[in-house]
Amino acid sequence: MRHLNTTVHPDIDHLDDKIIYQRNAARAIVIDGEDILLLYTERYHDYTIPGGGLDDGEDVIAGMVRELEEETGAQNIHSIKPYGIYEEFRPWYKEDADVVHMISYCYTCKIDRQLGETSYEDYEIKNGMKAVWMNIHDAIAHNEKTMAESPKKGMSIERETFLLHLVAKEML
Score class of each variant (00 low, 15 high):
Asn127Ile: 02
Tyr123Thr: 02
Glu121Tyr: 14
Asn127Thr: 01
Tyr47Thr: 07
Pro50Cys: 07
Arg23Ile: 08
Ile125Glu: 13
Tyr47His: 10
Asp16Pro: 00
Val60Cys: 01
Thr7Gln: 05
Ile125Tyr: 10
Tyr21Lys: 15
Asp138Pro: 00
Cys109Ile: 01
Ile136Glu: 04
Asp98His: 15
Lys153Leu: 12
Cys109Phe: 03
Glu42Gln: 13
Met155Asp: 03
Gly57His: 02
Lys152Asp: 12
Asp16Glu: 14
Glu158Tyr: 14
Gly73Tyr: 15
Asp138Met: 05
Gly84Asn: 05
Ala168Ile: 03
Ala97Ser: 11
Gly73Ile: 10
Gly33Gln: 11
Ala26Asp: 03
Glu144Tyr: 07
Tyr40Lys: 05
Ile77Ser: 01
Gly84Arg: 01
Asp46Thr: 11
Ala148Asp: 12
Leu4Ser: 06
Ile80Asn: 02
Met171Pro: 04
Asp112Pro: 04
Glu121Gly: 09
Ile20His: 04
Lys169Ile: 01
Tyr93Pro: 00
Glu88Thr: 00
Ile85Thr: 10
Gly116Tyr: 14
Ala168Gly: 02
Thr108His: 02
Ile125Asp: 08
His45Ala: 03
Thr161Leu: 02
Leu172Lys: 10
Arg27Ser: 09
Glu124Asn: 11
Asn135Ala: 02
Glu58Ala: 05
Met147Arg: 13
Ile80Gln: 01
Met134Glu: 13
His14Met: 04
Ala139Tyr: 09
Pro10Gln: 11
Arg43Glu: 13
His142Ala: 04
Leu37Met: 13
Ala26Leu: 01
Ile31Pro: 06
Arg113Cys: 03
Asp96Pro: 08
Ala28Pro: 08
His142Trp: 15
Ile49Leu: 13
Gly128Ser: 08
Asn5Phe: 08
Gly57Asp: 03
Leu39Lys: 06
Ile157His: 06
Leu39Gln: 09
Cys106Thr: 08
Lys152Pro: 00
Tyr21Ser: 09
His101Thr: 02
Tyr93Phe: 14
Leu39Ile: 15
Asn135Pro: 02
Gly57Phe: 02
Leu115His: 12
Gly53Tyr: 12
Met129Asn: 13
Phe89Tyr: 15
Thr146Ala: 05
Asp56Leu: 07
Phe89Leu: 12
Arg66Lys: 14
Leu166Gly: 00
Ser150Arg: 11
Val132Asp: 05
Met171Leu: 15
Asp112His: 10
Thr48Ile: 09
Arg2Ser: 08
Asp56Ser: 01
Glu34Asp: 11
Leu68Pro: 07
Asp138Tyr: 09
Glu117Lys: 15
Ile85Val: 15
Asp112Arg: 06
Thr72Cys: 14
Leu15Ala: 11
Met155Pro: 00
His165Trp: 02
Leu166Ala: 06
Tyr40Ile: 06
Gly154Glu: 04
Gly84His: 07
Ile103Cys: 08
Ile157Lys: 05
Gln75Ile: 11
Glu95Lys: 11
Leu38Val: 14
Ala28Cys: 08
Glu87Pro: 00
Asp46Ala: 10
Val100Leu: 01
Gly52Pro: 06
Glu160Val: 02
Met1Ser: 01
Ala139Leu: 05
His165Ser: 06
Ser156His: 07
Pro50Tyr: 10
Lys110Cys: 06
Arg27Pro: 00
Ala28Leu: 07
Pro50Leu: 08
Leu38Ser: 09
Ser119Glu: 14
Met171Cys: 09
Cys106Asp: 04
Ile20Leu: 07
Glu69Met: 15
Tyr83His: 06
Tyr105Thr: 00
Thr108Arg: 03
His14Val: 04
Asp98Phe: 12
Pro50Trp: 11
Val8Leu: 08
Glu121Met: 14
